[in-house]
Amino acid sequence: MAGAITVYAQGGTDIRPRHVTEPRWVQLILIGIALLFIGLVVLLPLASVFVEALKKGLSVYFASLTEPDALSALRLTLIVALIAVPINTLFGLAAAWAVSKFAFRGKNVLVTLIDLPFAVSPVIAGLVYMLLFGAQGYLGPWLQEQGTQIVFAVPAIVLATMFVTVPFVARELIPLMQAQGVQEEEAAVSLGARGWRLFTRVTLPNIKWGLLYGIILCNARAMGEFGAVSVVSGHIRGQTNTLPLHVEILYNEYQFSASFAVASLLVLLAVLTLIVKNIVEWKTASGRVH
């Protein structure tokens, strides 16, 4: 699963005996094609972000990052992530607990439903909140009476981001906790552990790396979400622009270097995400007790 942690025979990769593998020249060609493809499709775009960002020199680079609109975009992105990620982490923990430790009918349906936001286009995710809270929406007139602004303001951005990132922690934890089973928790209960203590002393230590990775992935998506936020934000400079939206605005104004400079921040976030993933995989492989 894209985004899931799995350990692929680290270090223990055997060289396959000659009779069940391809001739060396075929291997080299295949490796070459694979490297070429990855280089072309993945490395090139990554490199181009930094090349374009630094085209006008370091001083322009830093100026673009510290410009007021960029800073407020950064602030908004962080606020949104700080709200969406913890709530969805809580959701993920609750969902994984319910699904992995108990037997009930409709479990598959629930898991499929949790995956819904994953399958829905981000633009539709934004659309649904416009339908509910927009001026022509179902709750629109009522909201106007109350004087509360939801769409084209921060609350809608937070909601849209929450919608899109719902599945991330849950998808990470559910298979993990299902694989770990109920035995340890049941043993703890028979020894007298209750509720919160049961969770923090028994379950949490077992899932901590998967949880960390789920949170990091959720965060990367929350900070990088573009389509859903684009629909509901109103693009008001300095107020309702997140970092990705700011990148778009700069790009559309032909301020390419500035646009790529801000984009490079997001690339660093993605790289950080992957570094954490590798650490988690390494820890899971080497520190596994069961």
């Binding site: 374009e52 990088g224 979400e225 990705p244 939206l245 984009a263 997001l266 993605a270």
Partner: peptide
Amino acid sequence: ALPTAVAGIA
């Protein structure tokens, strides 16, 4: 892991 807007402009 990369934000889609960044991929787009790159």
